[in-house]
Amino acid sequence: MPPAVRSDAHVFAGGVAPPAGTLSNPFAGDRQAAGDGERIFRAMNCDGCHGGGALGWEGPSLVDGRWRYGGGDGEVFHSIYYGRPRGMPAYGGILETDGIWKIVTYLRAQPVPQDVPTEQWTP
């Protein structure tokens, strides 16, 4: 059972951060694990909702460097393990923690596009 994770992007009332555990990714930066993670991402039908390459489909893009629920290792792990309210299924019941960490490793290994904010049509 993973410990509770705090989102450090939240505003802390009174300026005081609530106590929280930490989750660290055992595969952080491991390229082979990222490759496994990409395969698991497809095998678990994540791509059916988040699109090929996790570029966004019915579910949000996971490779735009922007996150609804936080992009830290522990926060992404939580999103996958317990699901999220607007239609993200909880995978903790069928995926072992190593598998989830490999997906996290894959997602975090994707390059964040540089010109995200501006889309330009005129020269």
Binding site: L55, G56, R66, W67, R68, V116
Partner: peptide
């Protein structure tokens, strides 16, 4: 996906 502008955390090509 770029026809949407309501979610700053979801930017698509």
């Amino acid at each position: 996906g770029d026809v949407r502008s309501d979610d700053p955390a979801d930017v698509r090509p």
